[in-house]
Simulated scan of single mutants.
Amino acid sequence: MNNFKLIYRILKYIEICMNSEEFDDENFTASHFGVSNALFLNILRSLVEAGYISGIKVVTDKCGSDIVLINPHLTLTGMEYLADNTMMKKAYRLLKGIKDVTPGI
């Protein structure tokens, strides 16, 4: 899976969970997203460090890594990423549609 697709799916999942009283941590796993645990943890670390999400901490000790969830939510930067990504997809589909119906482009 493309890492940017994974990033989008993680951010979208957190956004959806922000509408609920409780964060659905049962499905917030590497297997739910169809990736390895190492990749999932590395992407989460990157998202936290980049300021896209907060309330999540990845703790690594001698036994491995664990995710600590403390009120996970998107930051404004994370919300902007989702909005921009959605607008880019719409623009791409529009331009592709124009290209498909316009001969010679």
Rank of each mutant, 00 (worst) to 15 (best):
D24V: 05
M18Q: 13
E26R: 08
C63R: 13
I70L: 10
F23G: 05
C63Q: 14
L74N: 05
L11R: 00
F23Y: 02
T77P: 08
E21D: 06
S46Q: 12
E49Q: 12
Y81G: 06
Y8N: 09
D66S: 12
L11F: 00
E49H: 12
D61C: 04
A83E: 15
M87T: 09
L6T: 03
H32N: 12
M88E: 13
F28K: 08
H32G: 08
I53F: 02
S46I: 09
L82F: 06
E26N: 09
M79V: 04
V48H: 03
K62W: 06
Y52V: 00
M88S: 14
V58N: 04
V35M: 06
D84C: 08
S46W: 01
V58E: 07
Y81I: 04
F23P: 05
F33I: 06
T29E: 04
I10R: 04
M79F: 10
S54W: 02
G51A: 02
M79L: 15
V48S: 00
M87W: 07
I70Q: 12
C17E: 14
D84F: 03
E22C: 08
L11A: 02
D24N: 12
Y8K: 10
N37D: 12
N3T: 15
N42I: 03
V58G: 01
R45Y: 10
L41A: 11
Y52F: 14
L41D: 07
L47M: 14
Y8T: 09
V59N: 10
G78I: 00
S20F: 12
E49G: 08
E15N: 13
